[in-house]
């Protein structure tokens, strides 16, 4: 696990995500999901590069099923960008770094 991505859970959700000053991108993932494992280094790289603009977090759906359920996450990896506690953008699947940059351009600009 890299140091730039914050691991969040049901216990820390409100503090880390809802209460975050910065917009947060949450990576909903699980150990058994191959695309999740493949995309993890891409998220780590983005976090290293853009941590001033966006906070990067990951939530294990096995450990925190209620949060995954609350946002109807039923395919992973799913990525949701939260701003002031509100889900603003949602996309999914393993993708190259540039695609993430495109999806998040509104917050990176």
């Amino acid at each position: 696990m890299g140091e730039n991505v914050v691991e969040v859970s049901e216990q820390t959700w409100d503090a880390e995500i809802i209460g975050s000053d910065k917009p947060v991108l949450v990576d909903f993932w699980a150990q058994w999901c191959a695309p999740c494992r493949i995309v993890a280094p891409v998220i780590e790289e983005l976090a290293g590069e853009f941590s001033e603009k966006i906070k990067f977090a990951k939530l294990n759906v096995d450990d925190s099923p209620r949060i995954a359920g609350q946002f109807q996450v039923m395919s992973i990896p799913t990525f949701i960008l939260f701003e002031k506690g509100e889900a603003k953008r949602r996309f999914m699947g393993a993708m190259p770094k540039e695609r993430f940059v495109d999806e998040l351009s509104e917050w990176l600009g």
Partner: peptide, 17 residues
Amino acid sequence: LTGRGISYCATCDGPFF
């Protein structure tokens, strides 16, 4: 509803069901 019940990857999403 893609990603909200519609899936193209059973090994990724099976455990949700």
